[in-house]
Protein backbone atom coordinates (compact mmCIF):
# COMPACT_ATOMS: atom_id res chain seq x y z
CA UNK A 1 0.00 0.00 0.00
CA UNK A 2 0.96 3.66 -0.37
CA UNK A 3 1.63 5.86 2.60
CA UNK A 4 2.47 9.55 2.42
CA UNK A 5 4.65 10.63 5.32
CA UNK A 6 6.10 14.11 5.60
CA UNK A 7 5.47 14.73 1.93
CA UNK A 8 7.12 11.56 0.69
CA UNK A 9 5.23 8.63 -0.69
CA UNK A 10 6.25 5.18 0.51
CA UNK A 11 5.36 1.73 -0.68
CA UNK A 12 4.78 -0.49 2.30
CA UNK A 13 4.10 -4.17 2.32
CA UNK A 14 2.76 -5.06 5.74
CA UNK A 15 -0.28 -6.52 7.43
CA UNK A 16 -3.22 -4.06 7.16
CA UNK A 17 -3.68 -4.39 10.89
CA UNK A 18 -0.21 -3.14 11.72
CA UNK A 19 -0.49 0.10 13.67
CA UNK A 20 0.81 3.15 11.84
CA UNK A 21 3.43 3.65 14.57
CA UNK A 22 5.21 0.42 13.74
CA UNK A 23 5.12 1.10 10.03
CA UNK A 24 6.76 4.45 10.66
CA UNK A 25 9.33 3.19 13.13
CA UNK A 26 10.33 -0.25 11.89
CA UNK A 27 9.50 -0.14 8.17
CA UNK A 28 10.34 3.47 7.31
CA UNK A 29 12.94 4.15 10.03
CA UNK A 30 11.06 7.27 11.10
CA UNK A 31 11.74 7.06 14.83
CA UNK A 32 10.52 10.48 16.02
CA UNK A 33 7.11 9.08 17.04
CA UNK A 34 7.68 7.02 20.17
CA UNK A 35 6.24 3.83 21.57
CA UNK A 36 5.01 4.33 25.11
CA UNK A 37 1.95 2.16 25.74
CA UNK A 38 0.43 0.84 22.53
CA UNK A 39 -3.10 1.46 23.82
CA UNK A 40 -3.67 5.19 23.19
CA UNK A 41 -3.03 6.07 26.83
CA UNK A 42 0.21 8.05 26.73
CA UNK A 43 0.39 10.10 23.54
CA UNK A 44 4.09 9.44 22.88
CA UNK A 45 3.20 8.18 19.39
CA UNK A 46 1.14 11.23 18.39
CA UNK A 47 1.35 12.19 14.72
CA UNK A 48 -0.91 14.23 12.46
CA UNK A 49 -3.14 12.64 9.86
CA UNK A 50 -4.43 15.38 7.59
CA UNK A 51 -3.54 17.85 10.33
CA UNK A 52 -5.50 16.06 13.05
CA UNK A 53 -3.65 14.62 16.04
CA UNK A 54 -3.73 10.83 16.09
CA UNK A 55 -2.29 8.14 18.33
CA UNK A 56 -0.40 6.18 15.74
CA UNK A 57 -0.04 3.12 18.01
CA UNK A 58 -3.76 2.50 17.78
CA UNK A 59 -4.53 3.17 14.13
CA UNK A 60 -4.16 0.24 11.74
CA UNK A 61 -2.18 1.39 8.75
CA UNK A 62 -4.89 0.01 6.49
CA UNK A 63 -7.25 2.67 7.80
CA UNK A 64 -4.92 5.59 7.22
CA UNK A 65 -5.98 7.71 4.32
CA UNK A 66 -4.36 11.05 3.94
CA UNK A 67 -1.13 12.77 4.73
CA UNK A 68 0.85 11.69 7.76
CA UNK A 69 3.08 14.22 9.48
CA UNK A 70 5.54 13.23 12.17
CA UNK A 71 7.72 15.36 14.40
CA UNK A 72 10.42 15.15 11.72
CA UNK A 73 8.03 16.68 9.21
CA UNK A 74 6.91 19.45 11.52
CA UNK A 75 10.29 21.13 11.59
CA UNK A 76 13.98 20.33 11.59
CA UNK A 77 16.83 21.42 13.88
CA UNK A 78 17.75 24.09 11.35
CA UNK A 79 14.19 25.15 10.59
CA UNK A 80 12.09 24.53 13.65
CA UNK A 81 8.33 24.86 13.74
CA UNK A 82 7.10 27.68 15.95
CA UNK A 83 6.01 25.14 18.58
CA UNK A 84 9.42 23.45 18.61
CA UNK A 85 11.10 26.85 18.91
CA UNK A 86 8.92 27.70 21.90
CA UNK A 87 9.82 24.34 23.45
CA UNK A 88 13.52 25.17 23.10
CA UNK A 89 12.99 28.68 24.41
CA UNK A 90 11.34 27.32 27.56
CA UNK A 91 13.82 24.43 27.86
CA UNK A 92 10.93 22.02 28.23
CA UNK A 93 12.45 18.61 27.59
CA UNK A 94 14.03 16.53 30.31
CA UNK A 95 14.49 12.91 29.27
CA UNK A 96 12.67 14.10 26.16
CA UNK A 97 10.99 10.83 25.32
CA UNK A 98 7.42 12.15 25.48
CA UNK A 99 8.19 15.44 23.78
CA UNK A 100 7.66 14.54 20.12
CA UNK A 101 4.14 13.52 21.10
CA UNK A 102 3.62 16.59 23.28
CA UNK A 103 4.78 18.88 20.48
CA UNK A 104 2.54 17.22 17.88
CA UNK A 105 -0.47 17.55 20.20
CA UNK A 106 0.33 21.20 20.87
CA UNK A 107 0.85 21.97 17.19
CA UNK A 108 -2.53 20.46 16.37
CA UNK A 109 -4.19 22.40 19.17
CA UNK A 110 -2.75 25.71 18.00
CA UNK A 111 -3.72 24.97 14.43
CA UNK A 112 -7.36 24.88 15.53
CA UNK A 113 -7.18 27.36 18.37
CA UNK A 114 -4.39 29.92 18.28
CA UNK A 115 -5.51 31.41 21.57
CA UNK A 116 -6.09 28.53 23.99
CA UNK A 117 -6.81 29.26 27.63
CA UNK A 118 -5.61 26.99 30.43
CA UNK A 119 -8.66 24.79 30.14
CA UNK A 120 -8.23 24.32 26.42
CA UNK A 121 -4.58 23.44 27.01
CA UNK A 122 -5.60 20.95 29.71
CA UNK A 123 -8.10 19.32 27.39
CA UNK A 124 -5.79 19.05 24.41
CA UNK A 125 -2.70 17.99 26.33
CA UNK A 126 -4.03 15.62 28.99
CA UNK A 127 -3.75 12.65 26.65
CA UNK A 128 0.01 13.10 26.67
CA UNK A 129 1.79 11.66 29.67
CA UNK A 130 5.15 13.01 30.81
CA UNK A 131 6.81 10.93 33.51
CA UNK A 132 9.40 13.68 33.98
CA UNK A 133 6.56 16.04 34.87
CA UNK A 134 7.48 18.86 32.51
CA UNK A 135 3.90 20.16 32.42
CA UNK A 136 4.49 23.70 33.73
CA UNK A 137 7.02 24.40 31.00
CA UNK A 138 4.83 22.71 28.39
CA UNK A 139 2.02 25.06 29.36
CA UNK A 140 4.31 28.08 29.15
CA UNK A 141 5.69 26.97 25.79
CA UNK A 142 2.21 26.44 24.34
CA UNK A 143 1.32 29.99 25.35
CA UNK A 144 4.50 31.42 23.84
CA UNK A 145 3.96 29.51 20.61
CA UNK A 146 0.35 30.72 20.52
CA UNK A 147 1.45 34.29 20.91
CA UNK A 148 4.06 33.95 18.20
CA UNK A 149 1.50 32.43 15.85
CA UNK A 150 -0.96 35.23 16.55
CA UNK A 151 1.70 37.86 15.98
CA UNK A 152 2.68 36.27 12.70
CA UNK A 153 -0.94 36.17 11.59
CA UNK A 154 -1.70 39.70 12.74
Amino acid sequence: MQLNVNGTSHDVDVDDEMPLLWVLRDELNITGPKFGCGIAMCGACTVHINGQPARSCSIPVGQVSGLVTTIEGLGTPDAMHVVQAAWVEHQVAQCGYCQPGQIMSAAALLQMNPNPDDEAIDRAMSANLCRCGTYPRIRAAVKTAAQNIREKNA
Partner: peptide, 21 residues
Protein backbone atom coordinates in the same frame (compact mmCIF):
# COMPACT_ATOMS: atom_id res chain seq x y z
CA UNK B 1 22.92 27.26 30.17
CA UNK B 2 20.66 26.10 27.32
CA UNK B 3 20.70 22.32 27.31
CA UNK B 4 22.82 20.81 24.57
CA UNK B 5 20.27 18.06 24.02
CA UNK B 6 17.27 20.36 23.77
CA UNK B 7 16.99 20.90 20.01
CA UNK B 8 17.46 17.19 19.30
CA UNK B 9 14.80 16.30 21.81
CA UNK B 10 12.31 18.78 20.38
CA UNK B 11 12.80 17.73 16.77
CA UNK B 12 12.62 13.96 17.12
CA UNK B 13 16.30 13.61 16.21
CA UNK B 14 17.64 12.47 19.59
CA UNK B 15 18.51 8.78 19.62
CA UNK B 16 17.11 6.81 22.54
CA UNK B 17 17.89 3.13 22.92
CA UNK B 18 14.61 2.28 21.24
CA UNK B 19 15.59 4.35 18.19
CA UNK B 20 18.86 2.58 17.40
CA UNK B 21 19.01 1.52 13.76
Amino acid sequence: VPRVDMVEKCTGTATFGIDVL
